[in-house]
Structures are given as structure tokens and as C-alpha cells.
Design a protein around this nucleic acid. Structure first.
Lengths: 219, 219
DNA sequence: TATAGAAGTGAGTAATCACTCACTAAGGGA
DNA sequence: TCCCTTAGTGAGTGATTACTCACTTCTATA
């Protein structure tokens, strides 16, 4: 797909020069996709909510699906990749000497990312099972590039003697699952229960550090 | 909703006395909902795949949504609740003296459950964001009943001195996230990469045991 | 074997779907 | 001022949607 990169780059630069109505369309579509799903939302509903004619949507996006991709694609490109590259450098420059510091920085960073892009991320997660393009994009941008960076980071701390020997991919999965689980419960069940965020983060970090520490027990 | 329990009970008993065509409808609907989503699947498609007339679907299910609920509801009732109750008793009867044995039994049990009901579970997970009824049912059956059981189990092992002091809900979240992450990567990325299942389980269990062990380090 | 009730059918319905197109409005450079 | 490009419009398109209903077929029991 040679035009995909072009499309992405275009979006990268063009966020500023969008018409007022175009912004309204994107906002309305994001909100409705998050609430009712892509297949459950009609273009007429989006137009009504955005306060534009239905034809206006199709002036800018050839199909309804293209609208979805324009909402969801830049999130992956713009916001995941740069973070990882930047933080990788910090790690390799010994900015996070302790693995714990790196974990805490990552949790904090992702929390802010999630807060800023909650509805878009929601749409992305909800729609990924139904759209091959989304899966492919995700694998391309996150699955390979980001993964490779993380492997380097983990190996760095393993060589350091800070975390135990184990395939890097397993470490990433364990850490990722734990952090993801924290975000999911925090965001989905937040209102339903008492939630001391700082304490939960502390417990989670401690659990991770202990779980990944080098074994001293001879079992 | 007073008729919900009745509906559930009915399904509980009636799985055997379904017509051949009804079974075909359920199978076809499950498969298509999993693949294309509830909103993205039309009743005419289901009828075609099941080899029945479209009217036959609506003879048994008043609406398309009722069909979805008939597919997804019994999974929660029949298969989650009994397991937990049974295993709770095993724990309280000291059948799993070691917390590790309990964890391993649970992983094994859930793996079999997932294998048997993969498409239904997939539909359930994919549709839960869009249907309030599903969320309510899940909270009612899993969120409260199952949660309460787990809290008892965790407290048992904490009193035993096998796992560290921490709110039971946090322990459940950490363990649950880790196991869920294992299942997700295993099932979603299974074909894409090498996967030594036994080794992964061992690593995960070791991670959990270390992570939840009682602290000896004076930090 | 007669019959009632359930299972199954498929043509038909109004509503809604994503999308088109001929059109007007607006803005900026020559 | 003219003109060209882009943005925006909304009525209209055929296809598809979930669902209905009058009808036939099957099946169990009396």
C-alpha cells in the first residue's frame, strides 16, 4: 500500500488547516463511534450531530470507512511512536537508571496519553476486531517498531542485573498486561468503586518489581 | 427485570430440545457475530448461512437483539458461576494447599473453558461495549457473585501467609490482568510467532508468585 | 386417523442505509 | 471585476434493513 504513508503524512501536517465543519464532523463521528460503534452509527446521524449536510461528509471522506480511518490512524502514528523513541533514548542515556523509574514514567506518560485521547482510543479498541486494515496498521506501527524498541530496553535492564532472565517478549507481555489491567479497571470501573489511584500505582509497581526481580530462592 | 431469571432458567434446561434448524441459526449467528459484529451482520445473512428462511429466525427470537442475548447470556450463567463455586469449595477444603496450585488449576480450567466457547466469548467481548444489558448482566453475575468468592479465596491465602498483604481486589486485578494478558496474546498472536505454552505458563506463574510473595526486603 | 399447535416459509413492507450529483456560496489571485 | 477552485448543500438514488403475516408442513397425542 504505497499511498498509506502519504495519507498519514498528510494528516500529520494538516490537522491545523481543517475547516470548522470538518472538525465538527470528526468530533461528532468520534463520539458516536465510541458510543454506538462504527457499524451502528449512520452517516445521517453524524451529519445531524455535527450540524452539517450529509453530503459534506462525503465531500471530505470518500466512504464512511475512510472517515473511521482518518480518526483512528493518526493516533497510532503520531502519539505512540514518538513517545517510545524519545523514552528509549532517555533509557539508553541512563536517564532512568532504575527500572522502576522507567516503569513509573511509562505509566504516567500513558495515563496522560489516554486522558487526552480517550474517545479515539475507545473507538480504536472497539473496532479493531472488525477491520483488517486497523489490525495491519497496528501490527506495522506498534507490533514491530515499538516492540523492537521495548526489547532493547528490557535487555538493557536485564544486562544491568535489575530484572531476571526471561525472554524480553514475555517481560513485555507481563508488564503490559499489568499496566493495561490497571488502566482498564481504572477507566471502566472508576465511578463504581473507591479508587485510591496513587496507592494502586504503588501496589502495581511493587508487584512488578518483585515479580521481575532476580530469584534468590533456591526452589 | 423479573423475567430475566426465568429466561435464563429456560435456556438452562432447553438446550437439548432445540430444533435442528434452531441450532443451525444459533451456530450461524454466533459465527457471523464473531466475524463481522452484531451491527454488521444482517438477519438475512444469518438465515442464508443457517439454511433457513428469514422468518424462521423471528419465529424463535422476537428481535435480532434477543438472538444475541440468547447466544451470550447462558455462557455467563452456566459456565462462570458453577466453576467458581466449585473451586471455592476446593480451596476452603484445603484441596489447593498452595496458592500456586490454585493459580495453575485456574489457568488450566479457564483455558479449557475458552477453548470450548471461543466464538461465544469473542462475541461477548466484542459486543459488551455497545449493549447495556450485557454490561448489567456481567456485573450482576460476574462482578458481584464471582468477585465475592474470589475475595474469600484471596483472604484465605493471605491469612495463610502465602501472599502479601494488599486489598483483595488489587490482588484479583493483578492476577486477572496477568492471566488475561496470557490468554489474549496466546489466542490473538498465536499463529504469528513461536509460542512455547508450557514455558510461558511457568514464567507467568513464577512472576505471579514472586510478585505476590511477602516482602522480605527492607526498602 | 383426525386434529391442534408448533415449526417453518418467503413474499412483502416501510424505513433506513451509504452514497451521488447538480447546484450555490465563498474566497483569493490575476 | 472576473474566474477558478474548494466547501458546502440537500433532494434523490437503488439497495438493504429488521421485521410481519398469511400460509404450508410437520408432529405428537387423543
Amino acid at each position: 500500500m504505497p499511498n498509506q504513508d502519504h495519507m498519514i503524512e498528510e494528516m500529520y501536517n494538516s490537522e491545523g488547516n481543517l475547516t470548522e465543519k470538518q472538525k465538527k464532523i470528526l468530533a461528532a463521528a468520534t463520539e458516536m463511534f465510541a458510543e454506538k460503534g462504527f457499524a451502528g452509527t449512520s452517516t445521517s446521524e453524524i451529519a445531524k450531530k455535527a450540524g452539517v449536510a450529509e453530503g459534506t461528509i462525503f465531500r471530505h471522506y470518500k466512504t464512511k470507512k475512510e472517515l473511521l480511518l482518518f480518526i483512528v490512524t493518526p493516533m497510532m502514528v503520531k502519539l505512540i511512536a514518538p513517545f517510545v523513541i524519545k523514552d528509549l533514548n532517555k533509557v539508553l542515556n541512563h536517564e532512568y537508571e532504575q527500572f522502576e523509574d522507567f516503569i513509573r514514567a511509562m505509566i504516567d506518560n500513558r495515563a496522560k496519553f489516554l486522558e487526552k485521547n480517550r474517545p479515539i482510543i475507545q473507538v480504536f479498541i472497539q473496532e479493531i476486531p472488525f477491520h483488517t486494515e486497523l489490525r495491519e496498521q497496528f501490527i506495522e506501527h506498534v507490533g514491530t517498531k515499538v516492540m523492537a524498541r521495548f526489547v532493547q530496553i528490557i535487555k538493557h535492564y536485564q544486562a544491568n542485573g535489575q530484572i531476571c532472565a526471561m525472554p524480553a517478549s514475555s517481560v513485555i507481555r507481563l508488564v503490559g498486561s499489568t499496566i493495561l489491567g490497571y488502566f482498564v479497571t481504572k477507566n471502566v470501573l472508576a465511578a463504581k468503586m473507591a479508587w485510591d489511584d496513587e496507592a494502586e500505582i504503588d501496589r502495581m509497581v511493587r508487584f512488578l518489581m518483585k515479580g521481575l526481580a532476580i530469584d534468590h530462592t533456591t526452589k
